[in-house]
């Protein structure tokens, strides 16, 4: 088991290095001089040269990559000051350390992800389980129908509609706003309630469908029937035998969704004007702030890889055949 995790993690690290290299060299493949972006409109050749030197752009690309990677693990010095250990460079835009900006924005994205996850997992899975248990009844048809309708909504449509109804017309809820939960738990909760619900509406449907279909598949397994033949109760067999087998496809989906959301639910954050990682990514593209973009990309990639390893580990926990192969 430990060996398995080690192997998967080392593989993930290798992939991360490859991604970083790819991103970095893409950065220089862009025909525009990055220093021009930092320098601004009335840029003199002297100023440009200084910026080149400050950003380390006068050195060969390989050396720059080495410095960048070195900075991530050991920190670097810039003219704006020391950039300590996980150093992703300095933003062209506001001369801030990229890592500090990411750290600043991350709690919002984390809150958004965690809250949404709780809502759509509980809602989606329970609806899916009920639909599977009551397969073929009106309840199943209602759940299946509703989930189909819900999944065809998009956040950029549903978000403004919900805002329009609950915030601007009726005023029942205030505009979404991030307050750290360490500061005020109630405000944190109320501030993110609308984004959570809107996000969950769209994600729930996936979980309803996957839970329903994999439960139905599992319920037809011979070992489920064999458990019933031993005299185990219907509910017990449903929850212990069938549910256990359904966890694998669900775990896969959860892992992918968490990774995607932590990397920034960009549309959600934009629709609700929240300043999270997704918003940061979008802004860095618009502002051509390449160090920031690079940092966000690497962080997102890291989340995807970490979630992959975690999901694999979860498989091993769920299924002894993976663990003891």
């Amino acid at each position: 088991m430990l060996r398995f995790l080690l192997r998967r993690s080392s593989g993930a690290i290798l992939i991360l290095v490859l991604i970083s290299a790819f991103t970095f060299f893409m950065f220089f493949a862009i025909p525009q001089d990055p220093a021009m972006l930092a320098c601004g409109k009335n840029c003199s050749p002297d100023a440009l040269a200084i910026i080149h030197k400050n950003l380390g752009l006068d050195k060969p690309v390989l050396v720059q990559y080495w410095n960048y990677m070195y900075g991530i693990f050991a920190g670097r010095n810039f003219d704006v000051g020391h950039c300590s250990a996980p150093c992703f460079g300095v933003s062209f835009n506001n001369q801030q350390m990229v890592w500090d900006t990411i750290k600043d924005r991350f709690p919002l994205t984390l809150s958004l992800t965690a809250g949404g996850l709780i809502v759509f997992l509980t809602g989606g899975l329970s609806a899916g389980l009920i639909a599977a248990a009551k397969r073929g009844t009106w309840l199943d048809k209602v759940f299946s129908g509703v989930s189909l309708v819900m999944s065809s909504f998009q956040i950029y449509f549903l978000g403004p509609v919900v805002l329009g109804i609950f915030v601007y017309s009726t005023g029942w809820l205030s505009k979404p706003k991030y307050v750290p939960f360490t500061e005020d738990l109630a405000k944190w909760f109320m501030g993110l309630l609308i984004p959570w619900l809107v996000m969950a509406t769209i994600f729930t449907a996936n979980y309803t469908r996957i839970a329903r279909s994999s439960m139905i598949e599992q319920l037809q397994e011979e070992h489920v029937r064999a458990a019933r033949a031993k005299g185990m109760g219907a509910r017990y067999v449903f929850m212990r035998y069938a549910w256990r087998g359904s966890l694998i496809p669900i775990a896969t989906l959860v892992g992918m969704d968490i990774a995607a959301l932590l990397g920034g639910g960009m549309v959600t954050e934009l629709v609700f004007s929240l300043n999270g990682i997704g918003r940061l990514a979008r802004d860095s593209v618009v502002d051509k702030d390449l160090p920031t973009l690079m940092g966000v990309m690497l962080i997102s990639a890291a989340f995807i890889l970490i979630m992959n390893v975690l999901v694999d580990a979860l498989y091993a926990v769920i299924d002894p055949r993976v663990r003891l192969a």
Partner: peptide, 17 residues
């Protein structure tokens, strides 16, 4: 308890979990 069953394929009739 009073009546029990032996299935054909033990690989599918025993839960892998």
């Amino acid at each position: 308890n009073k009546m029990a069953m032996i299935f054909q394929d033990s690989l599918t009739a025993l839960s892998p979990y």
